[in-house]
Lab assay of single mutants.
Amino acid sequence: MKVIFLKDVKGMGKKGEIKNVADGYANNFLFKQGLAIEATPANLKALE
C-alpha cells in the first residue's frame, strides 16, 4: 500500500515521502499512530 509519511519514522521514511509499505503495517501502526496517510489521488494532490 502506498502511504504518505506525516512524520519521520525511523527506518521507514521521512515526512512528506511516498513509499510502499505492507498493508498490515500501514493499517495497524502508521495510520493508528497518525504517522502516515494513504496515498490516494486526493491526498497526493493536497501534498503538492
Rank of each mutant, 00 (worst) to 15 (best):
K45H: 09
M12C: 14
A42Y: 08
G16C: 08
A46G: 11
A22R: 13
A42V: 09
F31N: 02
P41Y: 11
K19G: 07
L30M: 03
M12W: 14
K32L: 10
G34R: 09
V21H: 01
T40Q: 02
K32A: 12
G16S: 03
D8A: 08
I37T: 06
V21T: 02
P41W: 10
Y25P: 08
V3F: 01
L35P: 00
N43R: 07
T40I: 05
G13T: 01
I4C: 05
N27G: 09
K10Q: 13
K45I: 13
V3S: 01
Q33M: 15
K2N: 11
K32Q: 09
M12N: 05
N27L: 15
I4V: 11
N27S: 11
V9N: 01
F29L: 07
K15H: 05
G13V: 03
V21W: 03
N28Q: 14
Q33C: 15
E48V: 13
N43D: 05
N20I: 15
G34N: 09
G11K: 06
F31R: 04
K7L: 06
I4G: 00
L47Q: 09
I37E: 04
N27M: 15
N27C: 15
N43G: 05
T40V: 04
Y25H: 05
K14T: 09
K7W: 10
D23Q: 15
E38I: 06
F31C: 04
N28A: 14
F5C: 03
P41M: 11
E17K: 02
K15Y: 06
F31Y: 06
K45N: 10
G34T: 03
G24D: 15
T40H: 04
N43M: 08
V21D: 01
G13R: 00
K7S: 09
K10M: 13
K7I: 11
Y25D: 08
Q33W: 15
P41T: 09
D8P: 06
D8G: 05
K32R: 13
V3D: 00
I4S: 01
A39Q: 01
K2H: 09
I18Q: 06
L6H: 00
V9P: 00
I4H: 01
N20C: 15
K32F: 07
P41F: 11
G34A: 07
F29T: 06
L30N: 00
G24R: 12
K15N: 04
N28P: 04
G16T: 02
D23Y: 15
K19Q: 07
V21C: 10
E17A: 05
M1C: 11
I18E: 04
A46Q: 12
K14W: 10
A26C: 07
K10C: 13
P41D: 11
A39N: 02
A36K: 00
L30R: 00
G16D: 06
Q33S: 11
V9K: 03
G34V: 03
N27K: 15
A36T: 01
A42K: 09
K15F: 07
A36S: 01
D23L: 15
G11M: 06
A46W: 14
K10S: 11
N20G: 07
A39P: 02
G11E: 06
G11S: 06
E17W: 05
K45L: 14
L30V: 02
E38C: 08
E17Y: 04
K19L: 09
M1F: 10
K2S: 11
K14Y: 14
K14N: 10
L44C: 09
E48T: 14
A26W: 11
K15V: 09
D8C: 07
F5D: 00
L6F: 03
N43L: 07
M12L: 11
G24C: 12
P41H: 09
K2E: 08
N28D: 09
E48Y: 12
K45V: 11
Q33G: 07
L35F: 10
F5Q: 00
G16A: 03
N27F: 15
K19D: 01
L44H: 04
V9F: 04
L47R: 06
A36Q: 00
A42E: 15
L6W: 01
K7R: 14
E48W: 09
D23C: 15
G13D: 01
A39I: 03
A42H: 11
L47W: 14
A26Y: 13
N20V: 15
E38H: 08
K19S: 07
T40G: 03
G24M: 12
P41A: 12
Q33A: 10
D23W: 15
A42R: 08
G34M: 09
A46Y: 11
Q33H: 15
K19Y: 08
F5K: 00
V3Y: 01
A26H: 05
P41L: 12
V3G: 00
L6K: 03
A36N: 00
A42S: 11
E48D: 13
Q33Y: 15
D8F: 07
L44M: 12
K7V: 12
G24N: 14
A39M: 05
A36I: 06
F29E: 05
K15P: 06
I4W: 02
A26Q: 05
Y25K: 05
M12S: 07
A36C: 05
G13S: 03
K15E: 07
L47S: 06
K14Q: 11
A36F: 02
V21Y: 04
K10D: 14
L30T: 01
K14M: 12
K15A: 11
F31S: 02
L6P: 00
T40Y: 04
G16K: 02
L47C: 10
T40C: 04
L35W: 13
A36L: 03
I18M: 07
I37F: 05
A39D: 02
G13E: 01
T40R: 04
F29N: 05
G13Q: 00
L30C: 01
I4T: 01
K7Y: 14
K2D: 09
K15G: 04
N28R: 13
K14P: 00
F29S: 05
A22L: 12
K15D: 01
D23I: 15
E38V: 06
P41R: 08
F5N: 00
M1A: 03
A46E: 12
L47T: 07
K19F: 07
K45P: 04
F5V: 01
K10W: 15
L47M: 12
M1Y: 08
D8W: 07
D23K: 15
K10T: 13
E48N: 12
D8Q: 04
Y25I: 14
F29P: 02
E38R: 10
A46D: 09
M1H: 02
F29H: 09
D23G: 11
F31T: 03
A39K: 01
L44Q: 06
F31G: 01
M1R: 09
L30W: 03
P41I: 10
A46S: 14
I4Q: 03
L47A: 08
M1N: 04
P41Q: 11
A36V: 09
G11P: 04
V3T: 01
Q33V: 09
Q33P: 01
A22N: 13
V21R: 00
L30S: 01
L30G: 01
E38S: 06
L6G: 00
Q33E: 10
E48Q: 13
E17C: 07
I37N: 02
L47K: 06
G34L: 08
F5H: 00
G24A: 14
A42T: 08
N43I: 09
Q33D: 08
L30Y: 02
E17M: 08
V9Q: 02
D8V: 03
G24L: 12
D8M: 03
V21F: 07
K14C: 13
A22Y: 11
K14E: 07
K32T: 11
K10A: 13
A39R: 00
F5S: 00
L35K: 04
G24K: 12
K32W: 09
Y25E: 09
G16L: 05
N43C: 08
F29G: 03
I4N: 00
N43P: 02
V21N: 00
E38D: 04
K45D: 11
G24F: 14
Y25T: 10
M12G: 07
L44V: 11
I37A: 05
A26V: 08
A46I: 14
K15C: 10
A26P: 04
E38L: 07
K19M: 12
A39S: 04
L30E: 00
L35M: 07
I37D: 01
G13H: 05
G11R: 05
I37H: 03
A42I: 10
G24I: 14
K32V: 08
E48A: 14
A46F: 12
E38G: 04
K32I: 11
A39F: 08
K2P: 07
Y25N: 05
G16Y: 10
T40L: 05
F31H: 02
K32S: 10
V9T: 03
Y25R: 06
L35T: 04
K45F: 09
A42N: 11
N27E: 14
V21Q: 01
G34Y: 09
M12F: 14
E17R: 03
E48F: 12
F5M: 06
A22P: 14
K2F: 14
K14D: 06
D23S: 15
E17T: 08
K19A: 10
G11Q: 05
L44F: 03
L6R: 02
E17N: 02
P41N: 08
A42W: 02
L44S: 04
A46H: 13
G13Y: 07
K10F: 14
Y25G: 05
A39G: 05
G11F: 08
K2T: 10
L44W: 03
E17D: 10
K7F: 14
